[in-house]
């Protein structure tokens, strides 16, 4: 899932202080699971802004609401008229949600209420860990299922480097060296010899480096169009 973390209230206040009618808009999927930007967190942020406004003597109305997903029109379109009635939307969805909404709110600005951190998993209650970089060219079959692009500080394809120290990364003792783990895992899988193969320079054009990425599934589009025609929608 996409993991995010709330921005400091002072940073949020600087974004919203000049607006009179603010909607804190939560997203109840990924960022709700990581307790950063669901409807519940949107409610908390709204009351923090109200407190700050009263401390600063600012007159503003701050409401909150949430929808299931900011990244699909069917979830937020029913709420769009209401959303457009505000001066500012502070979205606590991930960056995808902020972008997607910004393309659809006309003259109403959409600002980010959280920092979108990474694609990760729940390692332990309240602990989220980055496990995928969304690089667009998965090589996990070569590395025992552990990703050096997301988890190595240097995105090395032929690791480990000389900075591995007692299983930790040179960046700090709190960071595991994923190449140390890859070697362990491949040994356990009986496939260590695979790591002797040199991985050639990558084609990063499938990653952020190729510009904004888009996937178009024609068969899904056609199917949906046919269904819509059948039902007369």
């Amino acid at each position: 899932m996409i993991v995010g973390s709330q921005k400091p209230i002072d940073e949020i206040w600087n974004m919203v202080k000049d607006y009179k009618k603010v909607l804190v808009f939560g997203c109840n999927t990924c960022v709700a699971i990581c307790h950063a930007g669901g409807e519940k967190e949107a409610e908390t942020i709204a009351s923090l802004i109200r407190m700050k406004a009263s401390q600063e003597g600012a007159q503003m109305t701050v409401d909150h609401m949430g929808v299931m997903r900011h990244c699909e029109p069917e979830y937020f379109e029913p709420a769009l008229d209401k959303v457009r009635s505000y001066d500012l939307v502070l979205s606590t969805a991930c960056g995808v949600g902020v972008n997607f909404l910004s393309d659809r709110t006309g003259t109403v600005p959409v600002y980010p209420g959280i920092n979108t951190s990474f694609y990760g998993a729940v390692e332990a209650p309240g602990v989220f860990k980055e496990l995928c970089a969304g690089c667009g060219n998965c090589i996990l079959h070569l590395t025992g299922g552990l990703c050096p692009i997301a988890r190595c500080s240097k995105t090395l394809m032929n690791g480990p480097c000389g900075g591995t120290n007692k299983g930790k990364c040179e960046v700090g003792p709190e960071v595991d060296c994923v190449w140390f783990q890859i070697v362990e895992r491949m040994t356990k899988l009986g496939k260590l010899e695979k790591l002797a193969e040199i991985q050639p320079p990558r084609n990063w054009s499938t990653s952020r480096d190729g510009g904004p990425r888009r996937i178009s599934m024609e068969h899904i589009r056609e199917f949906e169009e046919k269904e819509a025609a059948k039902t007369g929608k």
């Binding site: 995105t155 032929n158 480097c161 991985q199 990063w204």
Partner: peptide
């Protein structure tokens, strides 16, 4: 940091 390529590469 860049790391377009690594040492082996």
């Amino acid at each position: 940091n860049v790391y377009d390529v690594d040492t082996c590469q």
